[in-house]
Simulated assay, not measured.
Amino acid sequence: MNIAYWIVAGLLALFYLYAGTLKVIRTRDRLRPMMAWVDRVPLPAVRALGAVEILGATGLVLPPLTGVAPASAPAAALGFVLLQTGAMAVHLTGEDRRIALNIALAATAAVTAWLATGPLTH
């Protein structure tokens, strides 16, 4: 793996590990100030999204680190692109139309997927 992959994927994994953990353990009231959309989504779905984010973060780091199923890393990154595409749709259909962070996360995930499949990473 090259240094660029580890920097970008590491930062992305840290973000999703943090955000996913919050969604899994915090109450709706404690999530609301950071995530205005939580009132429009059933709490089990919020918890499931958090679990997916934690698993995706793990998928960015563990496969390249261990060499086991390394194709999982670009798949996890592409999963985050899809997740953020859905997040943008949720934001745009509600009152909260701020999607700058979603765009940045989707772009970062796309770069991570590209780096994970590039010739410098093998």
Rank of each mutant, 00 (worst) to 15 (best):
V111S: 14
A48G: 08
A109C: 09
P74H: 02
T93Q: 06
L55N: 00
T66W: 07
H91D: 13
L49Y: 13
G86V: 06
G67F: 01
A48V: 10
V52A: 15
V61L: 15
L92T: 04
D96M: 02
A71G: 14
A77F: 05
P64R: 04
L101M: 15
W114C: 04
V52I: 15
A57K: 03
A100H: 09
A77M: 04
A110Q: 09
A69P: 00
E95P: 05
L49I: 13
T85D: 01
V61G: 09
G94T: 03
A89D: 08
E53F: 00
A75W: 13
A71H: 13
A104N: 12
A104H: 11
P74N: 02
T85E: 02
V111E: 11
V111T: 15
A109G: 10
T112I: 05
A116S: 12
A116H: 10
G86K: 01
P70A: 08
G79W: 08
A73R: 02
G86D: 04
L101Q: 14
R97M: 03
L92Y: 04
S72F: 14
G94C: 02
L83H: 12
T108P: 05
A113H: 06
L62D: 01
L62F: 08
E95I: 03
V81F: 12
S72P: 00
A57R: 03
V111I: 15
H91M: 09
A73W: 03
A76N: 07
A71L: 14
T58G: 15
G59Q: 06
V68W: 10
A104D: 11
A57F: 01
A109I: 07
A87D: 13
I54L: 09
A76D: 08
L101P: 08
A109P: 04
L60G: 07
T58P: 00
E95Q: 14
L115D: 11
D96W: 03
V61K: 06
G56H: 10
P64D: 06
A100M: 06
P70H: 09
D96R: 09
G94K: 01
P63D: 01
A77C: 08
P64F: 05
G86M: 02
R98T: 14
A110R: 08
G50E: 02
T58L: 13
L83I: 08
R98W: 13
D96E: 10
I99F: 12
T93I: 03
A107S: 13
P74A: 04
V90K: 01
T58E: 02
G56Q: 12
